[in-house]
């Protein structure tokens, strides 16, 4: 196959794989045969439930609670496909909106150690946001800030995921060959969506990606050219 078609072919293959995974997910959820989902379905199993933890749906999908009210295999398939597509589209939009910043983040991401550090930073950030939001909620007046913070964190995680995809794309580019950068990044993003669509494990994989991405965004100060150095204040 000529080098020109390698990337489009890979992209198509990954999209097909994503659709197959959506189908698998949908059929699993339709039949609810997996132990985890059945346990969650039959919640009245004697364990005391804390007030305020409403049993909500099946849980366990990477894209939030699965809508319970509408069912049907075709609808489930569409739901998974649409949410995965949303993830890819939003992350790609991040790359298009902040190409230079994404590039700087990828440059900082020069070893797996940095990725590990980003994961730790992401975990710390999540816990920080958790505690801080709780404090904000207690003040009642500042409650809206908690929502704003969570949106900010989601955007940060999305940007981080996009950067991780760009990094993966750069690694793959060395082996597969050059192509339009957006095509390569899109392929990597679809690969991430594939990961997220793996039944049950996808939830954790996407969580891991999101936390690492958030950490990466925090570590590089949203891909700013000078990181956290405050030299620019001193002129």
């Amino acid at each position: 196959m000529t080098a020109r078609w390698r990337w489009p072919a890979l992209l198509v293959a990954l999209v097909v794989l994503a659709l197959l995974l959506c189908w698998l997910d949908a059929s699993l959820f339709e039949r609810t045969v997996l132990p985890g989902s059945r346990r969650i379905l039959t919640r009245g199993d004697g364990l005391p439930r804390p007030a305020g933890f409403p049993p909500r749906g099946l849980g366990g999908t990477p894209f939030g609670p699965f809508p319970e009210t509408i069912s049907g295999a075709l609808f489930s398939l569409g739901w998974f496909a649409a949410t995965a597509l949303g993830l890819v589209a939003l992350a790609a939009a991040m790359l298009v909106a902040f190409p230079a910043r994404a590039r700087l983040v990828v440059d900082r991401l020069d070893s797996l150690t940095v990725a590990g550090t980003a994961l730790v930073a992401g975990l710390a950030t999540v816990l920080l946001l958790f505690a801080f939001s709780f404090l904000l909620r207690l003040t009642i007046v500042l409650l809206p800030l908690a929502g704003a913070l969570s949106i900010l964190a989601a955007l940060g995680a999305l940007f981080g995921i996009a950067c991780l995809a760009l990094w993966l794309a750069g690694q793959a580019r060395l082996r597969i060959g050059p192509a339009h950068p957006l095509l390569i990044a899109l392929t990597a993003l679809v690969a991430f969506a594939d990961l997220a669509l793996i039944p049950f494990a996808g939830l954790f994989l996407l969580g891991l990606l999101a936390v690492t991405g958030l950490g990466l965004t925090v570590l590089t100060r949203f891909g700013s050219p000078r990181g956290w150095a405050m030299d620019e204040l001193d002129w």
């Binding site: 849980g59 999540v126 908690a146 929502g147």
Partner: peptide, 14 residues
Amino acid sequence: SGELSDVVGWGLGT
């Protein structure tokens, strides 16, 4: 798997 998202959502106010 089911509750982790609840805890996060609860902390974040959703």
